[in-house]
């Protein structure tokens, strides 16, 4: 089967475990995805399965994407198209619908998403700089101060400075699947996943 699925983060809520403990869970709408292209070593240089996710209306579908989906025989307008690298072809067909039932309850998965954007932030928030004293006569409080030694007469590349923070690709590992709702294609994982509600996430199986 496919090594992962595309999904949409719905939000977080609580559930009770069998021991009666309250657990935070994230609800992800995972799939259904449709196979749009099968890439092979001979033709494309590597093995992969390309899938599309999330239906949209006709007016939001670009013409090149329309042609690509038509070629694959998918009768849906799909917003997102991503591919999963595989070592051996799992035996899926073009246009095949794949749902959340590729995962099992109790399985451990990784979830990749884009973290929330924080805008332009200073060094204290962005890199956990200590900052200076708030009192005792200090007149600077949250400035980055020294940028390095005076010897090289320049600032090294990669020196941590204030700047744009967030919207990074973040992978959350070791998330346990609490529950699967195959009817509505919902997957409930223990704990939080990156990104705002409604954002695209990629759920991957742990291979080893």
């Amino acid at each position: 089967m496919l090594p992962g699925l595309l999904g949409k983060k719905i939000g977080m809520t609580h559930l009770f475990t069998s021991e009666g403990k309250m657990a935070p869970v994230t609800v992800i709408q995972a799939g259904p995805v449709y196979v749009t292209q099968i890439k092979t070593e001979d033709k494309d240089g590597y093995e992969a399965i390309q899938v599309g996710f999330e239906e949209i209306s006709d007016k939001h579908l670009s013409f090149p994407k329309y042609g690509h989906l038509k070629k694959a025989g998918v009768q849906k307008n799909l917003r997102t198209i991503r591919e999963f690298r595989v070592e051996t072809q799992p035996g899926v067909e073009l246009g095949q619908e794949i749902g959340v039932d590729i995962f099992a309850e109790g399985e451990v998965v990784t979830v990749t998403g884009t973290s929330k954007g924080k805008g332009f932030q200073g060094g204290v928030k962005r890199y956990h700089f200590k900052g200076q004293h708030m009192t005792h006569g200090y007149m600077t409080h949250r400035r980055p101060l020294s940028s390095g030694a005076t010897g090289p007469q320049r600032v090294f590349k990669g020196t941590r400075k204030p700047g744009r923070m967030g919207t990074d690709t973040v992978t959350q590992k070791g998330l346990k699947v609490i529950k699967i709702d195959a009817e509505r294609n919902l997957i409930l994982v223990d704990g939080s996943v990156p990104g705002p509600n409604g954002a695209l996430v990629v759920i991957n199986k742990v291979t080893r």
Binding site: I10, G11, T13, L15, F16, V27, D181, R184, L188
Partner: peptide, 14 residues
């Protein structure tokens, strides 16, 4: 809606 899905997920435990 997203909120309705969240409510329906928690509902059996209420």
């Amino acid at each position: 809606s997203k909120q309705m899905i969240l409510t329906s997920v928690a509902e059996p435990h209420i």
